[in-house]
Design a protein around this nucleic acid. Structure first.
Lengths: 186, 186
DNA sequence: TGATAATCATGAGGTAGGTCAACGCCGTAT
DNA sequence: ATACGGCGTTGACCTACCTCATGATTATCA
């Protein structure tokens, strides 16, 4: 839980009472490598804060090809956010690439936290804004750059992520085949 | 201004006093077709609410090729949000595709509105979340679909937008050449 | 009204990246 | 020790899309 507090306090300062109030809304869970946190078609009950580990958010197209919408690791928030936020069925799967520990926040508590503590709403807004900006950067990368450039941008932006993730998975994130990714360093 | 009130009240109800407080933070401006609202390298003073008209947010790559990061029309918010939010120089241009009227909100007032009226922060958070989800949908489209599929998805999602925007501009949004887009209907 | 610029379509040829298939190198479980 | 699955590489071939060039049609505006 201390990790969560530090994470929030990077954006808004908290009193002990405030953090106690926040902490009350989270539950914790552990998953093993290869386990599914969310499966396509599930109800998505939680937004997850990752304490430890590494996950991929996967969209599977109609030819059964897997596309990685995002990776998430320590201190990141992750979910099938559309399904979570609009209370619809998951269209993506959330899968562990390593053993993973998360804190879970359900939608009701997400709203209660926003209502009950303006600092928390501020924090969540800040996260939402930067989440949007990250997605926009990715769109620009996809629009403007070829496979090699996108790979280099990824290495620059998340050098430690690239260490931890198999190349085939990076390829599925970058939107290229693993063969193409493998040929880039020549 | 009435348009703004209706727009906000689709998400949170407001009293007259509350809306008066909100309205006080906005100024209004008009631009002609082809005019730049933001130029690359500018300071970005405002986040814009579009009352009327149509704009494109353009990223120009190092080969001088233009990529359209987003379109915005009536009731949409637009800016080079990274530059606005982090008070850095614009890396994108915001250009009118039609005569356009906007309401302008500077960063200081954006923060004051969040601080001064929790309803407004709620509203902005809701917008931020859906902005993120829209960007994520676009990423999935770029990762999973070919030119024709992406074009069809765009038509389905924003049929009226497609009417108003020249095909060459749609191509720059979809990430294909205008020639390719022109050949799709065969 | 005539000139100029957008807009759209189409042909020809080139290329980045996809697909399919084979192979080598681990790590780990039997 | 051996077998097997995950992971990465490489070759051969194919295709979706790009680029360059031309021309037709339609707005726009002096």
């Amino acid at each position: 839980m201390d990790k969560l507090r530090q994470h929030i306090e990077r954006i808004v300062a908290l009193t002990d009472e405030e953090f106690a109030f926040i902490a009350r809304h989270f539950s914790s869970r552990k998953y093993k490598k290869h386990q599914y946190i969310i499966q396509e078609g599930d109800e998505v009950k939680y937004h997850y804060f990752i304490l430890k580990g590494l996950t991929k958010l996967v969209y599977t197209d109609d030819t059964a090809k897997e596309h990685i919408v995002s990776f998430a690791m320590e201190d990141w928030w992750e979910s099938d956010f559309l399904a979570f936020y609009t209370q619809t069925k998951a269209t993506m799967a959330l899968i562990c690439l390593e053993d993973t520990e998360v804190l879970c926040l359900n939608l009701e508590d997400y709203k209660k936290l926003c209502d009950g503590l303006q600092k928390m709403e501020r924090f969540i807004l800040e996260k939402a804004n930067f989440g949007f900006l990250g997605a926009q950067r990715r769109i620009i990368s996809l629009l403007t750059s070829n496979a090699k450039e996108r790979y280099e941008q990824l290495i620059k932006l998340y050098p430690n992520l690239v260490q931890r993730v198999p190349k085939a998975q990076l390829a599925a994130y970058l939107g290229v085949s693993r063969e193409t990714l493998s040929r880039l360093n020549q």
